[in-house]
Amino acid sequence: MRVEVVRGDITAEDVDAVVNAANTRMRGGGGVDGAIHRAGGPAILADCVARFPHGLATGDAGWTTAGDLRARWVIHTVGPDRHAGQTDRGLLVSCYRRCLEVADELGARSLAFPLVGAGVYGWSVAESVTAALEAFAAATTDVEVARLVAFSDAAYDVVAGLLS
C-alpha cells in the first residue's frame, strides 16, 4: 500500500472512499464530520440513521453512501476523545485498521483519511499519524493508496516529516 500526504479538503478528494472522523452518534457534527455531511448532502445522514440506529463504538468503522461527494463511499470511524478520558492509543490504531477492513469489504482501493483524533479529540497530529502508520504497516489489505489529508500547512509539515 502506498501512503501519501496532501494538503487540502478531504471532501474534494477523488478516491473510492473518504474516511470520516465521526462521533459515536453518527448524526453529523463539527470539523471533518460536519464538512463531509455538508458536502455529501442529506443522503449520508439518512444512511447513517438507517445503518447505525444506535451509533458506532469508539475505535470501530462502518460505511455509508457518499452522497454528492466524488467518492463512492464514506467510511465513518469514531476516534477516542482524550478530553473524555479515552486515552487508549490502541483505539486510535483500531480506527485506521477498521477503516482498511471496511474498505476491503467494499472493494475500495483508494482511501482519503483525515487525521483521526487530532483536533477537538485532543490527539496530536503526530500521534494520529503514527497510529495510522502502525495500522497500515500491520495490515493485510487490498487497499492500494492510503492518502492522509492535512487541512493546514502545519499539519501537512508534520505528516510529511513523519512519512519521509
Rank of each mutant, 00 (worst) to 15 (best):
A108F: 11
S128R: 06
A126V: 10
I44Q: 00
D153P: 12
L106E: 06
D68V: 05
H76A: 07
P53S: 07
V102I: 04
F113Q: 02
P114R: 06
R98Y: 01
G34F: 10
A126I: 08
R89I: 13
D153Q: 14
T77W: 09
P114C: 02
P53T: 05
A126E: 15
A126N: 09
A84I: 04
A43I: 04
C95S: 04
F136H: 11
L56T: 06
L162I: 05
R89F: 12
P42E: 14
H37W: 07
P114K: 01
D88P: 00
A71V: 00
D60Y: 06
Y96P: 13
L45V: 05
H54S: 14
F52G: 09
A154D: 15
D157S: 11
P42N: 08
T64W: 00
R97W: 03
P42Y: 00
A118L: 11
V145K: 00
E144T: 11
A138L: 11
D142T: 14
G161F: 11
D104V: 12
T65V: 14
A155W: 07
V158T: 13
V116K: 04
A154E: 15
C48G: 02
W63N: 08
R38L: 11
E127I: 03
R98N: 15
L162F: 10
A138G: 14
V120A: 15
Y121N: 11
D153S: 15
T65S: 00
G122L: 06
T130R: 13
L111H: 03
L92T: 09
L100S: 09
A103H: 05
H83N: 15
V116L: 09
